[in-house]
Design a protein around this nucleic acid. Structure first.
Lengths: 233, 233
DNA sequence: CAATATTTGTGACAATTATCACATTCCGAT
DNA sequence: ATCGGAATGTGATAATTGTCACAAATATTG
């Protein structure tokens, strides 16, 4: 399952999926990026980036959905977050120590863009506004992640499952009706509970009329109650 | 308990506690910082910054030790990390949304420096190298925090207490013998367990000869075993 | 140096959730 | 359509840890 890497033809100027940060670059800088980047496609399920690997290129998710995760002791997987399109993957790892701390795998077919790490770094150093945008994006990401973790650790299992449903509804898909992009096991890995427990709580929510559930399709029926459960924990 | 705010006399040039980031500023920029900053002293126990407050000044911890924490539902406190000297407090909050997400309180007498937020931001935008240093420091902070949380959530209580002891020994004090800077309750708040459980595990470690424990003073006797417990979870 | 408040230690018990073992259902490939 | 494997659901049980109530020890303050 090797995916093709295709040298980009476009100049970034007309890229529909350009990042907020790249939007503040001038024409010359944008061309530098264009001539040092490559586009690539990945199928659902493929690993985009592996924890522990060294970073030679920044990866920017142009389209699609991915999971950010780590593996504990070979087996147990912990999902940090779901990454939406228009996001750079693993920026803190790049600036922190150049070793990727998290793995990324495609939850949908994805289009990504590889950008040479040295060029990226020199842009940060020469364009403070670009750096500022990167800073804003990594800061928000950090706050969101830590926020999620902090609240999770205060919550019992019902609150956690409610959180996960609300996360998909409000942050990822922005609708009350959606299909989970992965298995029960992965849902459990996202909120840090066992698969069996996650299953049980989902079914409980269904039987109480809080959600509608058919396989991986979820419809939120009683949003208020779900939010209440999320908060009461 | 109001602490004095004293207009700085020094010019940052000769500041012994200058940050890594400020070290890359040129003389003119450093003077801009100097003329827009104030030094202040806080006693042990005092709150440096309160979650929810708006940011008008960056706070830089020149000397001392502080805890970064949030309060859940008024009562329960969760400590994110212990902050050592030579650290900017709450940078992700500043760049994220300008609202402070975490509180900070002094665990020792502290010397801090207030820097005007607008001046700080303009330095980021005009000096990419400064921005880069800030990026490195926030990235490392983020990786460390998330790393700690991720591993914690995989661990049982023995592993967590071991982690806390190793955290103080290796990261905070860099010695095998140290005094905890706070109560058992706060230790419990740091690792997300109940006070009683934390106490019990500490005493267990003592009775098994892994650590020596007198009040808040801890000596690590069997480092290997402690590390093993930390890993096995 | 009392007197009082705070912190720490302890045991019994209850609540929560993981684990295990297995049944059932779903889904893709032939 | 059928077969086989993966994903999901289910019950029983055990392990873990929080909670409560209180005792002991340690600090703090007038």
């Amino acid at each position: 399952m090797v995916s093709g890497v295709i040298k980009t033809e476009n100049t970034c100027h007309d890229c529909k999926d350009i990042s907020c940060a790249a939007a503040v670059l001038n024409s010359k800088q944008l061309e530098l990026v264009a001539s040092n980047s490559q586009e690539s496609f990945l199928k659902k399920g493929e690993v985009i980036l592996h924890e522990g690997s060294l970073t030679s290129h920044i990866i920017y998710l142009k389209t699609g959905l991915a999971k950010e995760y780590i593996k504990h002791s070979g087996e147990k997987e912990q999902i940090l977050q779901i990454v939406k399109k228009h996001t750079y993957l693993g920026l803190p790892s790049l600036f922190g120590d150049r070793i990727n701390h998290y793995s990324y795998a495609a939850l949908e077919d994805c289009k990504i863009c590889y950008i040479d790490i040295n060029k990226f770094n020199s842009l940060v150093r020469e364009n403070g506004n670009f750096a500022y945008e990167i800073l804003v994006s990594t800061s928000r990401d950090s706050l969101n992640n830590i926020n999620r973790f902090l609240h999770r650790s205060q919550k019992k299992i019902f609150g956690r499952v409610a959180d996960a449903i609300l996360y998909f509804s409000k942050i990822i898909y922005e609708t009350n009706q959606f299909d989970l992009p992965f298995s029960r096991q992965e849902l459990a890995d996202l909120i840090g509970v066992s698969r069996e427990s996650a299953t049980r709580v989902l079914l409980k929510f269904k039987s109480e009329g809080i959600i509608d559930l058919k396989g991986r399709s979820i419809t939120i029926v009683n949003m208020n109650l779900l939010e209440q459960i999320s908060q009461t924990g």
